[in-house]
């Protein structure tokens, strides 16, 4: 099962390595990880996309909670939430492909944020599956480079993760 774990952690050097080290030491997998300070600069928020059985997930959240720097842990996928991922994708845009790329970006509600004579950089935000679909909708030969942020997510409505 796919799970999105959200973590509030003290914004201190080494905090990321404690979390990453925990996952590797205990054999849990990380499909994506994203981290940045919150509106309170003393705290960072980390979002980890992972998978495993219910037992494994229970251990992951317990072990994360045990880390001294971790303030709060929540499994977002346990209840209603929204999730997004950002991708920047550089594509070849020459000749007739140029118009086709523009059209595809529009269909997927992407934005072209860099243009050269032969390339576009398209910015695309959405659920990870949407980004996957965009990639598979393009001619693989035209994709020059992709970079994705990994999933970040937030609970819906009154579900708030705060100190």
């Amino acid at each position: 099962m796919r799970h999105i774990i959200s973590i509030l952690i003290e914004n201190e050097s080494g905090a990321l390595s404690r979390v990453a080290g925990l996952f590797s030491a205990r054999g849990y997998n990380i499909e994506s990880l994203t981290v940045a300070p919150t509106e309170d600069p003393s705290l960072s928020r980390m979002t980890i996309l992972t998978s495993g059985s219910d037992e494994v997930l229970e251990q992951i959240t317990k072990q994360l909670n045990k880390l001294v720097d971790v303030v709060k842990v929540v499994d977002l996928s346990e209840a209603a939430h929204v999730e997004r991922e950002l991708m920047l994708i550089k594509v070849r845009a020459t000749g007739k492909d140029r118009e086709e790329m523009k059209r595809m970006a529009d269909i997927f509600r992407g934005r072209i944020i860099d243009v050269t004579e032969s390339t576009f950089v398209i910015e695309l935000t959405g659920a990870s599956s949407k980004l996957d679909s965009f990639i598979s909708a393009l001619d693989a030969g035209l994709i020059l480079e992709t970079v994705r942020t990994g999933v970040c997510g937030i609970g819906r409505g009154d579900r708030i993760l705060k100190v």
């Binding site: 037992e55 229970e58 317990k62 072990q63 909670n65 045990k66």
Partner: peptide, 8 residues
């Protein structure tokens, strides 16, 4: 005292 020891 350690929740992670329970049901491990």
């Amino acid at each position: 005292i350690d929740p992670s020891s329970i049901s491990k």
